[in-house]
Design a protein around this nucleic acid. Structure first.
Lengths: 189, 189
DNA sequence: GGCTTTAACGGAATCTGTTCCGCTTACCAG
DNA sequence: CTGGTAAGCGGAACAGATTCCGTTAAAGCC
């Protein structure tokens, strides 16, 4: 067995990058249910290549959305800086849900990330837990949010909300956010 | 055009009944992802017949689970009779989530029902809204639950929870139920 | 009971997602 | 620069879901 495993081939790296670029664009244009073959073709590679780099749709989706997802996470820090913790949290929840429902397919993308602790997702997942954690800590600090909820629980709940919100109306989504805020503030201080 | 549209053929009715029976059994044994062809074969009909009666998997699943689902709904009334409203609600939420997560695939079945207002589901959906409504009304009556939440919102939320709970641990599911209860009791009385 | 109509049937054909494998070509050593 | 090696490639083959349509037989009428 070789001590130094030969480094990744340059064409493999290029193909991966191109697939990612194309996928992000196609997902935005046509939604997440685009045929894998179409993405591969547009990237100028065979389906085999697509599947080798991204064995499941979710892996591809996560990779394609990672950039946007990190922006959503950054938003949490911005909101905490500008608003009282509870208000920041409310706004971020709404932002998250709005984001999840606005983009066709974004909800399942988020859920793919949220509900997975396994490797390929670790990056985005950790980002989200951290974002929620920032909000919760701020709230616990000034007593506007209860201190006994865990960030990963809230994230899981949020994934469910995003899922549910897709099927309900916009107003219903807003009411669910309100309910969630009530849960987070219950017995705080 | 005929004034009296010829009545449904007897073999069609039999086939439908048999498919339903087989589907419920197969779902219980092997989960929801059983191949349609396998169900059709076991019921002694062609796939075309299966698809004609149940154009989507969800329609079939809803039909197959309708009986069980109605038992879950009845449970709400039983709990209200035996316990204070808030406690009955907590128990029912846990029962619901447990049910959704215990049976492989039951969660998506429930969500198919919950998230749909359209005809084929109307029956089960209405049943669920009624069950939640019973609990909320009882709680509003004695002031242990807030009076300003809508049954269909809670149901939507619950669908999200069931979805989320599938991916989390049992303990996480319990904590989500607790959070939801906190939301329902916040500012009550 | 025989005849006409047409709902309903079955499964072949089709369409879509995924895996597999023989060929290609980038990498590295000499 | 040249040859050996195996990572990576492409698309053919496969698998499962869904549709389509020629055939069958139940319903209703005489």
């Amino acid at each position: 067995m070789p001590a130094t495993p030969r480094r990744t081939r340059s064409d493999a790296l290029e193909n991966r990058a191109r697939l990612l670029e194309v996928a992000a664009q196609v997902f935005a244009e046509e939604g997440l249910d685009t045929a894998p073959a179409a993405i591969a073709k547009r990237a100028g590679v065979g389906v085999g290549t697509l599947y080798r780099h991204f064995p499941t749709r979710e892996v591809l989706v996560d990779a394609a959305y990672q950039h946007q997802l990190s922006r959503v996470c950054e938003r949490a820090a911005e909101l905490v800086a500008r608003h009282p913790p509870a208000e920041a949290t409310r706004r971020w929840l709404a932002h998250f849900i709005g984001y999840a429902t606005a983009k066709r397919g974004m909800s399942s993308a988020l859920n793919a990330v949220i509900t997975s602790g396994v490797d390929p997702f670790a990056n985005s997942h950790a980002l989200l837990v951290e974002a929620v954690g920032t909000l919760l800590e701020a709230g616990a600090g000034d007593g506007s949010l209860r201190a006994d909820v865990r960030a990963d629980d809230v994230l899981l709940l949020l994934g469910g909300l995003a899922y549910a919100a897709q099927h309900g109306t916009r107003k219903q989504a807003d009411r669910l956010v309100d309910l969630t805020m009530d849960a987070l503030t219950a017995g705080a201080g």
